[in-house]
Design a protein around this nucleic acid. Structure first.
Lengths: 230, 230
DNA sequence: CGTGGCGTTGACCGGGATCAAGTAGAGTGG
DNA sequence: CCACTCTACTTGATCCCGGTCAACGCCACG
């Protein structure tokens, strides 16, 4: 995975794709594996913290609910990425939920062991630090966007982020199968609105659909929508 | 400063009020001081990263703009707190702005020195890690709130956070003088809307005003507004 | 063939942004 | 001390984006 283009152009991301094994053999030795199926809840807000998780394969959404039926997807964790790390030093319960949206295998190490490792392995702690700072920049950008950017721009940004994280298929479509509902939750808008916005983007020739797969037809114009007019 | 009550009840916060000197004498020896006056911009989005900052005294707002005249205040840094730490491992420019809203003295150490210290001082790195994880939880809660919580709840939460961070004066008012504009930006809403909402809260006897100072008259009911109905 | 779930679309509505205008201080200069 | 300006606060009127609700089509599946 490359870092989200909007934030940081060319550097590769910390703690993601394949870099896991280089840094933390001690942790890898201790991890326990879970097989998860599509839609399976790994943990949810308020659950007692079990540990810190890694995606071996599959895709996990990290999300936060509001009320009975509103959620916001904060990020997707794909192969090699950590999740549940926000629980570090917290009050012992998860502040977010994690749900598999594509079947796969996730691993976890209990928090105590992880924290011990951090204290011992300076290099790893440092890299995790960098990753958290990065995470924070992404999160704060998202907050700003939800507060001020119109839905159209948020959908555009969401698609660009998905493209950056998951890449393209051979025929140029964004390489993730995402329900419209999840795309909406990731954009911080409703199902119906996102639907309409996507139609708009298609009629403006910025996107092309094939079933539920999405292809970006005009990257330039799409990323213009994510820019600040000033 | 206590941690924001909503997130984490009783623990004291990392890297804040007075704990600075215990952890990082090396850094304190290297810091340079700046006197800032009210309204002075310390750095802004896009500026090249100078270093990491600390508040000696005064209050600094950390904010992010959208367009010419919209901003979102992400947090306030008061005595003893760090800011600019999101720049760690970034692309060399600040992704947010920092502006003094109360005159005081801020210090900074250049990023290179800070990063070196982090690599050497494991304990400090670990504590910063915990702090970043905490920051992330707060940030993600805020994102969710802006996406789904109505303005009234956001204003309520903003006031509670201010009370937790700045405490109360002897006569029970929140101990910070904040312009309505800043309160609005912190709540992620417009000036006028926040004004109306505050009036509403007053007529419901949840708040009392004295000039621009605000007192929480009914904490119970106010914090109810920040809760998820489900 | 019904039935249930999701995709699609239209109609409506309301929260909150925007616009406009008036008021009250807080300096500032004469 | 008053007039003048400037900025912040206050309030009403209006508008519109996007959320809500409802209906319909479509396909899968029992």
């Amino acid at each position: 995975m490359k870092k989200v283009a909007i934030i940081d152009e060319e550097k590769t991301c910390f703690l993601c794709k394949n870099c896991l094994k280089e840094w933390i053999p001690a942790i890898l030795a201790h991890k326990k594996n879970y097989k998860v199926k599509k839609g399976e809840i790994i943990f949810k807000e308020g659950d007692p913290v079990k540990g810190i998780f890694f995606v071996n394969n599959g895709i996990v959404k990290v999300h936060k609910r509001w009320g009975a039926d509103k959620e916001l997807i904060l990020r997707f964790a794909s192969e090699g990425m950590v999740f549940g790390h926000r629980a570090l030093g917290g009050d012992g319960v998860y502040s977010i939920s994690a749900t598999a949206i594509q079947a796969g295998i996730v691993s976890y190490v209990d928090m105590e062991f992880f924290e011990t490792t951090l204290k011992v392995n300076t290099d790893f702690a440092y890299k995790l630090l960098m990753f958290l700072a990065y995470d924070l920049r992404v999160s704060e950008r998202k907050t700003r966007n939800v507060a001020h950017m119109p839905v159209k721009g948020r959908v555009a940004e969401a698609l660009i982020m998905l493209k950056d994280q998951f890449g393209l298929t051979d025929d140029g479509y964004i390489n993730i199968e995402l329900s419209r509902q999840d795309l909406a939750s990731f954009s911080g808008a409703t199902y119906e609105t996102v639907f309409r916005v996507i139609n708009e983007l298609i009629s403006e020739n910025l996107l092309v659909l094939s079933g539920k797969r999405i292809s970006i037809a005009n990257f330039e114009k799409l990323s213009k929508l994510t820019e600040d007019a000033a």
